[in-house]
Computed example of a mutant assay.
Amino acid sequence: DDLWTIDAWNWIHDTAFPKINNRGSRIIITTRDAGLAGRCTSESLIYHLEPLHIDDAMHLLLAKTNIRLEDMENDEDLGSIVTKLVKRCGYLPLAILTIGGILATKKIMEWGKFYRELPSELESNPSLEAMRRMVTLSYNHLPSHLKPCFLYLSIFPEDFEIQRGRLVDRWIAEGFVRATDGVNIEDVGNSHFNELINRSLIQPSKVSTDGVVKRCRIHDIMRDIIVSISREENFVLLTREKITVVAEESIRHLAFHGSKCSKICLEWNHLRSVTLFGDRPAGRTPALCSPQFRMLRVLDLEDAKFKFTQNDIRNIGLLRHMKYL
């Protein structure tokens, strides 16, 4: 799924296919690169996915907003605005689901006003940049208590499966979730998670037999937008291999994606969370669990792939504000 390089295809082909393929073996791949698809197979075997038919697009929007088809058929104005909305979305499922998640929280009489706010690029040019503007609008319409919860997802790598409990517990430790009268803080955190699911901003990836979402993923386009907004707002800093990072003093959340980051210019004592994926960070960074992280609330080492030293453990004990480990 979501193939990007011919090297990845060559590895799959050489590994999965026997040298003598006389049993009719087949591999289905998806990619956004038409040129790459052509290098994997003949043109006759390539299926170019088209936008939804208008009727299917309208049914998808109605389903997302819990509006019955009969209601639309009996209301000429509603039918007209639904038609305009799916056209403005370029008949693209992700755009329709994203916009539908917003409309589900609004009264039908407000749909016309919302339609006029939508960027029109997708109607004539269903490009990635136009899609990004559409999803950014969804972020702007989020209630204030959900915005930090949503941006926090940029910490996790692409295609990463996120555990519901891990995410909610981290939100609580960061202070993004507050208990309300008669409702405990875990239930409030779970309601935030469910709201992001209902708005199609995150995708369920594992659901229990009683219908509870246990794990989720973020669509690639959605994650790109979250990372971009997080960078603009100095919310999360991501480090990748062989990249020099110069960050603002106000950065509060740091995630290491890979071990080699040549230089990070950062006020370490301002950090609230540090998350590690992969090997121990190398280069000009403080020691893991350094006393410089004195304001740290979250230290997530679940996906770290290295052994901890006695010095690491001793330093963790000095982090007085730690609420999640």
Score class of each variant (00 low, 15 high):
residue 77 D to C: 01
residue 94 L to M: 06
residue 98 T to L: 13
residue 129 E to T: 13
residue 148 P to R: 00
residue 99 I to A: 01
residue 65 T to V: 13
residue 89 C to A: 11
residue 74 N to H: 01
residue 73 E to L: 13
residue 115 Y to A: 14
residue 164 R to S: 11
residue 88 R to D: 11
residue 63 A to L: 11
residue 62 L to G: 00
residue 121 E to R: 09
residue 121 E to M: 01
residue 92 L to A: 06
residue 117 E to M: 09
residue 83 T to V: 05
residue 118 L to A: 10
residue 104 A to M: 11
residue 138 S to G: 07
residue 64 K to G: 01
residue 159 D to G: 06
residue 142 L to M: 04
residue 157 P to T: 03
residue 88 R to L: 11
residue 147 K to F: 04
residue 72 M to V: 15
residue 161 E to H: 08
residue 159 D to T: 03
residue 101 G to L: 08
residue 68 R to G: 09
residue 165 G to P: 07
residue 148 P to V: 01
residue 89 C to Y: 04
residue 71 D to Q: 09
residue 127 S to G: 05
residue 149 C to L: 03
residue 121 E to Q: 05
residue 121 E to L: 03
residue 126 P to T: 07
residue 72 M to E: 00
residue 134 M to N: 12
residue 89 C to K: 01
residue 124 S to N: 07
residue 108 I to R: 10
residue 72 M to K: 07
residue 155 I to P: 02
residue 108 I to N: 03
residue 139 Y to D: 03
residue 123 E to I: 08
residue 123 E to Q: 06
residue 92 L to M: 10
residue 112 G to K: 15
residue 69 L to W: 09
residue 134 M to K: 03
residue 79 G to R: 03
residue 80 S to N: 10
residue 119 P to R: 15
residue 75 D to K: 08
residue 135 V to L: 12
residue 85 L to Y: 10
residue 70 E to G: 02
residue 126 P to Y: 01
residue 61 L to N: 05
residue 126 P to A: 06
residue 120 S to E: 12
residue 155 I to K: 12
residue 120 S to L: 02
residue 96 I to Y: 07
residue 90 G to P: 05
residue 140 N to T: 14
residue 112 G to F: 08
residue 91 Y to H: 05
residue 93 P to Q: 10
residue 97 L to V: 14
residue 60 L to W: 13
residue 59 H to S: 08
residue 68 R to F: 14
residue 153 L to G: 08
residue 85 L to F: 08
residue 91 Y to T: 00
residue 132 R to S: 13
residue 106 K to G: 02
residue 110 E to Q: 10
residue 165 G to C: 14
residue 111 W to C: 07
residue 77 D to H: 04
residue 165 G to A: 15
residue 152 Y to D: 09
residue 84 K to R: 13
residue 135 V to F: 05
residue 134 M to G: 04
residue 101 G to R: 07
residue 139 Y to W: 15
residue 112 G to Q: 15
residue 115 Y to S: 10
residue 130 A to P: 03
residue 71 D to W: 06
residue 155 I to D: 01
residue 65 T to K: 09
residue 104 A to D: 09
residue 139 Y to V: 09
residue 104 A to T: 10
residue 105 T to Q: 12
residue 116 R to N: 13
residue 64 K to V: 06
residue 128 L to R: 05
residue 101 G to A: 08
residue 95 A to R: 10
residue 59 H to Q: 13
residue 111 W to R: 13
